[in-house]
């Protein structure tokens, strides 16, 4: 069961919705000045990312509140509910790469507002990359909504086994701190049930 890599060389083919960026920024009403800064950040984020992902397709067994992935057993009511009718699932990890973290830091040091905006633009982009991966999975399968460790009662402890089975350090460049944070910060692990 080798993980399969996904690379996307041009991030410009992904959409970054300004509305989403504003939502992450916590802004209800925008203005021209802010719109302008967001557009600039959207334009500059692409040169800071290297889009990579790694995935496997595994048989799963859902019993009560427990989901058995083979490489790990997860006790979670919300996940079990999400995967109730599934016999298989995709497990993936996706990331914008470590240079994006550096770029966020640099932007923030130069100008705090631009840093905050750049951060939210990056978050929107990684979500958009996950959507792209979902679409790829969905070409030949009917899928459940993706579900990540940390949602509901799906403990982020499971980040460890997921990253390990996906060989995430070697394939995507992701490491985990002792407090279970992923580096680079714009990284997502998720499970997608197959109906």
């Amino acid at each position: 069961m080798l993980p399969i890599l996904i690379q996307l060389s041009d991030s410009r083919q992904l959409t970054i919705s300004k509305k989403e960026v504003l939502r992450y920024l916590g802004v209800k009403e925008s203005n021209d000045q802010l719109d302008d800064l967001i557009e600039k950040a959207i334009d500059s984020v692409h040169s800071t990312v290297s889009l990579k992902a790694s995935y496997i397709r595994v048989p799963i067994l859902v019993e009560g509140e427990e989901v058995d992935f083979g490489f790990d057993k997860v006790k979670s009511q919300s996940l079990a509910k999400n995967l109730k009718e599934c016999k298989e699932a995709f497990v993936f990890v996706a990331s914008l790469g470590v240079l994006n973290d550096k770029a966020i830091e640099k932007n923030f040091k130069l100008d705090r507002l631009n840093g905050a905006i750049f951060d939210c633009v990056s978050t929107t982009l990684i979500e958009s990359f996950c959507d792209y991966i979902n679409e790829y999975f969905g070409e030949k399968n009917v899928l459940r909504p993706r579900f990540s460790p940390g949602y509901g009662d799906f403990s982020i402890e499971h980040q460890r086994s997921i990253l390990s089975v996906l060989d995430a350090y070697k394939n995507v460049g992701i490491t985990l701190t002792d407090s279970l944070m992923m580096i680079p910060s714009k990284s997502v692990t998720a499970v997608v049930g197959i109906l």
Partner: peptide
């Protein structure tokens, strides 16, 4: 106003 405007003024 929201965080971005607050930051803009702060900067």
């Amino acid at each position: 106003i929201f965080l971005p405007q607050l930051l803009m003024s702060a900067d």
